[in-house]
C-alpha cells in the first residue's frame, strides 16, 4: 500500500494549512535560529570556550542561575498558597486577586522594571524602610531576585490551579485536617498529587527568569561581576560589535533553554499520564 503522510479525513485544507504552518514557522523561527547556530560554527572551539568561560561571563551565569532559582523557589512556596486559596476558599475580592495574578504576563517588562526600581531604590516606598536597616535591594542581587519573583509568579499559580481543582476527596479530608495530622495530610496526600504541576510551574518560572531582561535591567544596576545578568552581557557585547562573543554566549543560553523546554515537556507528559491513569502511578 502506498505510504500516506496524513491519515484520511473528510475535511479539506490540510495541504494549504500544513504547508503555510511549516513555511511561516521556518521563516520566522527556524531559519533565524539556525543562523545563530551556524554563526557559532565560525568560531574555533578555543575561541568559543574562552568566551563562554570568561570570568565576567561565569559571574553572570552564576548570578542569573542563583537569582532565577531562588525566585522560582519563592514562587513555588507563595504561588502554592495563592493557588490554594483561589481554588479552595471563597472570600471577598477573590476575582480581583485571580485577575491580578496575571499582571506580570500583561504588564510590559520595562514598566514593571522601572516601577520595581522606583519602589526599592533608597527613596522609594519600600527602599526607604529597608535601606536604613542595612538591606540594599535595588542595584543588588536581591533586586534581581525581586524582579524575577514578580515575573515568575503567574507560571506557578496557573500551573497549580487546575491540578488543585482536580483533587477532590483527599482535599475534602485535608480541608478538615486534624491538628497535628494537618502537615502529614499535606505532604503525604496533596503534595504528591500536585507535584508534577508544581515542578512544571517551577521550571517555567525558572526558565523565564534565566532569559528575563526588561524587568531586571533597571533594578540590577548592571555592574560587571556583581549585578550583570547574562542577557545584559549579550547586549553589551553587541554594543561593542563583538558579534562572535555575543553569539557564543547566546548559544549557551539557548541550549540551556532547550534543555529546560525538554524537561518541562517531560514533566507535562508525566502529569498527563498520571491524570489518564486516574492518578494511580
Amino acid at each position: 500500500m502506498k505510504f500516506k503522510f496524513k491519515k484520511y479525513s473528510p475535511l479539506p485544507g490540510f495541504g494549504l494549512t500544513f504547508g503555510y504552518t511549516i513555511f511561516y514557522l521556518s521563516l520566522i523561527v527556524l531559519i533565524p535560529l539556525a543562523a545563530l547556530f551556524f554563526k557559532s560554527f565560525s568560531l574555533t572551539w578555543h575561541q568559543f570556550w574562552d568566551t563562554v568561560t570568561d570570568i565576567r561571563v561565569l559571574a553572570s551565569y552564576k548570578l542569573t542561575f542563583m537569582a532565577a532559582f531562588i525566585a522560582a523557589l519563592i514562587n513555588a512556596v507563595f504561588g502554592f498558597i495563592v493557588a490554594w486559596i483561589l481554588v479552595r476558599y471563597q472570600f471577598p475580592g477573590k476575582k480581583f486577586i485571580d485577575a491580578l495574578v496575571d499582571l506580570p504576563f500583561a504588564l510590559p517588562t520595562a514598566v514593571s522594571g522601572i516601577a520595581l526600581t522606583t519602589i526599592y531604590s533608597k527613596n522609594g516606598w519600600i527602599g526607604q524602610i529597608l535601606e536604613p536597616i542595612g538591606i540594599k535591594t535595588a542595584f543588588s542581587p536581591l533586586g534581581i531576585m525581586i524582579a524575577l519573583t514578580f515575573i515568575g509568579l503567574p507560571f506557578v499559580v496557573r500551573s497549580l490551579q487546575p491540578a488543585l481543582d482536580d483533587l477532590d476527596l483527599e482535599v475534602e479530608e485535608a480541608a478538615a485536617c486534624l491538628g497535628a495530622n494537618c502537615w502529614q495530610t499535606f505532604y503525604k496526600v496533596i503534595l504528591p498529587a500536585v507535584l508534577p504541576s508544581l515542578l512544571t510551574g517551577f521550571a517555567l518560572a525558572f526558565a523565564r527568569g534565566l532569559g528575563e531582561y526588561g524587568s531586571v535591567v533597571f533594578i540590577s544596576g548592571n555592574m560587571p561581576l556583581k549585578t550583570e545578568i547574562t542577557s545584559l552581557l549579550i547586549i553589551s557585547k553587541l554594543e561593542q560589535y563583538d558579534y562572535a562573543g555575543a553569539t557564543a554566549i547566546a548559544v549557551v543560553m539557548l541550549i540551556i533553554s532547550f534543555v529546560l523546554l525538554l524537561l518541562i515537556n517531560l514533566l507535562q507528559s508525566w502529569n498527563n499520564r498520571r491524570v489518564n491513569n486516574g492518578g494511580v502511578n
Binding site: L36, T109, S231, I234, A250, M253, F258
Partner: peptide
Amino acid sequence: AISPVISGFI
C-alpha cells in the same frame, strides 16, 4: 522558551 534578547539577536 527563548530569551527576548536572543530573539532580537538572531
